[in-house]
Amino acid sequence: MNILLYGLVTGILFGFLMQKAHVIRYDKQLGALMLKDFTIVKFMISSVIVSMIGIYLLSDLGYIKLDIKSASLGANLIGGLIFGVGWGFVGYCPATAVAAVGEGRWDATFGLAGMLVGAAVYAEAFPLLKESVLAWGNMGKITLHGILGINHWIVIAVLTALFTGMFAWFEKRNL
């Protein structure tokens, strides 16, 4: 029971932050896809920087364990492309579509209904995909520092510097 309560509270806080940052708006998500307004990228990448540092710090100290997902070229590339096409039409990703309903964006409810249908369709197609796309270019649980054979803090430092540079560029260009 406790774990469900943790989920609810974490979700409420996350939804609160997304609403305040304006990232659950169709206009902002399309703005990023049209390379005109990078609000959602600022939110996502800020979150990535902080959590990347926090997660690796806690992992190094032995408090938590990492949960690295397998990389599969076929699944990630083809799935990503299909996702992108759908995203352009819906204008919300799954989590933001749910949160968008919370601030009165009724079009998101239709996006959500479609997403449920999409999940059911995927369940039907899964046996076929398992033998094909999902098996193509499966590289297992890889990491950047693992491939490069360097300490993870080097990757974290370089990425943080690159992301900060990107933010500075966004602000300079008023994006």
């Binding site: 469900l4 996350f14 939804g15 997304m18 968008a100 919370g102 601030e103 964006r105």
Partner: peptide
């Protein structure tokens, strides 16, 4: 519960900020 909480959090935030608005079609 996390996903459902996201809806509640957004509802709370938009109500507190007087930012909740019934929007059937996005402006853009």
């Amino acid at each position: 519960m996390f996903v459902f909480g996201g809806l509640l959090g957004s509802l709370i935030a938009s109500r507190m900020g007087r930012d909740f608005k019934s929007t059937p079609v996005p402006p853009l």
